[in-house]
Design a binder for these strands. Structure first.
Lengths: 110, 110
DNA sequence: TTGCTCTATGTCGGATCTGACATATACTGC
DNA sequence: GCAGTATATGTCAGATCCGACATAGAGCAA
């Protein structure tokens, strides 16, 4: 697995010693984790595009800055339910979420 | 809203008196509920395509028949986390989930 | 350095979810 | 009618999550 992705997993609170340990996750667990990471990234990008701080987003969501930080980090105490609700509350639509899960095929990669 | 959809919501444990009450749900809550319904439908279709009973699926998921019934009904005690994990464990991929959320545009609707 | 802003991490009470079980309902074929 | 099978509903103890708060760290300007 790529190093940046493993780093993200570790930051998310997953215990991932090295690439080998990552194989301890079953295929479906990996897929699920990737979905969470994708939603978390989407949330962060959306916040940044809106030019908001985590605190401001927390206010909009009726939550706290610390929770928003954990959402963006795809921390293990954060569910996809929370990520989806948050994305929607920040104005995302189902298509946006779909794009996060299934990145559009590149139009002739460089 | 369509009657069959409202019926689904009621079966899912949501208190929905009539179409007017449904408007009590905010736009983002509606979007979230629709995501859940879509995932639940996807799970049921996948099970049926596999020719399995709820009990058999429960065994594969390490759960119980009653929980699977609630998953397929998008009951309020069922999270998208559970639905996603279940879909993945039944062999779905991210693209399958994406399709559930964002139905491909019809190729010339009849 | 100090001060300020933003983000990250740890913890906790109360709320919610999960699997399990019992039970109910629905639909067969007898 | 009665079995047998499949699905639905209600409840519960234990597990997990959520928002909140405190606090730590990173980055920047003066």
């Amino acid at each position: 697995m790529r190093a940046d992705k493993r780093k993200k997993l570790e930051r998310a609170g997953w215990t991932v010693g090295d690439a080998g340990d990552f194989l301890g996750l079953s295929a479906e667990e990996r897929r699920f984790v990737e979905v969470k990471l994708a939603l978390a990234d989407g949330l962060r990008r959306r916040r940044e595009d809106l030019g908001l701080t985590q605190g401001e987003v927390a206010e909009r969501l009726g939550s706290s800055q610390s929770r928003v930080a954990k959402m963006e980090a795809a921390h293990r105490t954060v569910t996809t339910d929370l990520l989806l609700k948050s994305l929607f509350r920040l104005g995302a639509g189902p298509e946006d979420v779909g794009r996060l899960l299934v990145p559009r095929p590149r139009r002739r990669a460089a």
